[in-house]
Amino acid sequence: MKRTLHVKDIILITLIAIIFGFIYVASDNIYNFLTLILTPIGYGPLANDITMGIWCMAGPLAGFIVRLPAAAFLGEFLGSCVETFAMAQWGAANFLSGFIQGLGNELGFTLTGYKHYGWFTLFLSATTTTIVTYLYDFFKNGYNQFSIFNMILYFVVRWISMLLFSCVLVKLIVNLLERSHVINLQTTQD
């Protein structure tokens, strides 16, 4: 029988998203601190790219724990909906970013057909998220005004952040979960 998302999965996915939101907000001073340091040299928006990987961790993790289509998207998107109501920091931008980031996350899992779960999946997901969110910020945050060098710099920084957090850190968390048999090991491994 084909498994579909049940209410328990949806609760779990949302809870995971909220946890990541909380830990991020708890360390929100990192973002403000980075912005303050970088603004005088004209790289203020770079703080967004440096911390982007932390924002996008909930999606891949939800995708790994609940191994079903749409889990990664929902992890990111539902989390942003809850955050919009609970913290209301960025207002409607939260909804939209959550939606775009969710799409990026999901794409990585779609490209592996929801069958292969390992390093490669996370690498793909991190990369697709980087591309999708960068394209959106290209217009939304005015990256199209930057010099070519800066455009590339912002992209590379975002990608590195994504690989560090949404790929390496998520994999380390997944390893802990697998070792404690929270996630069953029957699916394909690297």
Partner: peptide, 19 residues
């Protein structure tokens, strides 16, 4: 801290039991 896998691991265990 926000970069410690163990923090997320423990929080996810709680989330699973709450779910």
């Amino acid at each position: 801290s926000f970069y410690s896998p163990r923090l997320y691991f423990k929080a996810i265990l709680s989330a699973i039991s709450w779910a």
